[in-house]
Write a protein that binds this DNA or RNA. Structure first.
Lengths: 230, 230
DNA sequence: CCTACCGATCGGTAGG
DNA sequence: CCTACCGATCGGTAGG
């Protein structure tokens, strides 16, 4: 993905031997460089989120940092590279969440519960990135667009497998497994639309309750005459 | 979305006064005018959907119609007016669906089922408009943005009321009514993301199954030892 | 309903 | 890391 990510510190070759530990200086410079990149991305996320990608100029992004446009071009090859970096971070976060869950143990019910819960949390913790990604999908290069599709497919596939396992074990009862997986993906993907930070619920509470709802949608209905599930 | 098939017969000005009822001629002109507006909107929907609003030029829209840009400016004051028209159509469709359901009778379960089903159908039947609306929300004037928020609030409020009625009648069992209404709204709002026309399911089947899932999420769990709900 | 154009914006770069 | 700029794009309009 991101290409200009590669910008390595150059120049300053001759003088380097005067330093006792050149490795330390290198890493210091990398850190500074990484910090600046992060600040650029962070300012861009903020503006793209509020004004859209096309509606935001690089001059604005630079101004938000108290810099000028050429500063950005030291770290990113183009405006579109910057967008790709934002989206790839959203993907990375989501993939991390998914991988964390792949290794989990427990009953299908337990697993489904944590998958939904963790994924909603991941989406809410990167709300702006996630929103930008889905909104600006058409602006991305085909290669980058393919990544999000892949991620969605992975998620759906995993959920479908889990639902089928649950059915086989008698924990779930589902008429149409595909549609059920889409319903669950909907709850995850739509979370940033309705969730408001500082509202009635914390992210964790919101994620927990949504996960409980997802579970109640697919679980075998047990004998119970009244009242919410225990 | 044919293109230059549109060529209307022109000229014939002098001869028109031979028509007996000028009122009829006016309405004819209105119809033609409306037809042209519709064709412009339809071409714009197609392009905005595929390329995004900012990524589409008015020259492209005109070209898709076999016309030139000034043609569009005869019917719309600006590019943003055109977007607002598209979004307002999406809103109108959704509002129509909501109003149709307000007048409905039946148990809370029945009502919830038809609300979800009808609304998903409405969203799927205007998929491109709906997607454009949510994607380009930031491009709209504040007044237009307010309309979509209002619609969402109406939908949520109505669903919440329905869920509470269902609880009072002992049909539903829900731990958090607000979150449940968001879960239901998610299924509706996310439908265009996963639904593919010409796929395994028709729109009606997709809507039906999603509605059944929504219902099973909130219904009181009845005694049943195995198998899908009847 | 077109030709032909203006004017502003903005991504990107040269050069220091 | 800035000043200063180019060049292309594109929304919008004049005039017929």
């Amino acid at each position: 993905m991101a290409d200009s990510v590669q910008r390595k510190p150059r120049a300053r070759r001759a003088a380097e031997d005067s330093s006792p530990r050149s490795g330390e200086r290198e890493s210091m410079r990398d850190l500074v460089s990484q910090l600046k990149r992060d600040r650029i991305v962070s300012a861009a996320v903020d503006l793209f989120y509020r004004q859209g990608y096309a509606g935001t100029t690089l001059d604005e992004v630079a101004k938000a940092l108290g810099m000028t446009k050429p500063f950005i071009y030291q770290y990113f090859g183009s405006k579109n590279d910057l967008l790709a970096e934002i989206c790839s971070r959203a993907i990375r976060h989501a993939n991390d969440a998914l991988n964390r869950l792949l290794s989990q143990q427990g009953s299908p019910s337990d697993k489904l519960s944590s998958i939904v819960c963790e994924f909603i949390l991941s989406v809410l913790n990167n709300q702006a990135n996630a929103v930008i990604y889905s909104r600006e999908e058409t602006e991305l290069a085909p290669k980058d667009r393919e990544m999000i599709r892949q991620l969605r497919r992975d998620f759906d596939r995993r959920v479908v497998a889990l639902l089928e396992e649950g059915i086989a074990r008698g924990e779930f009862a589902i008429a149409d497994v595909r549609v059920a997986s889409f319903a669950i993906a909907s709850m995850v993907g739509w979370a940033p639309v309705w969730f408001r930070a500082g509202g009635r619920l914390t992210k964790e509470e919101a994620a927990d309750r949504m996960a409980a709802l997802a579970l109640s949608m697919v679980e075998v209905k047990r004998a119970a005459t009244e009242g919410p599930r225990a």
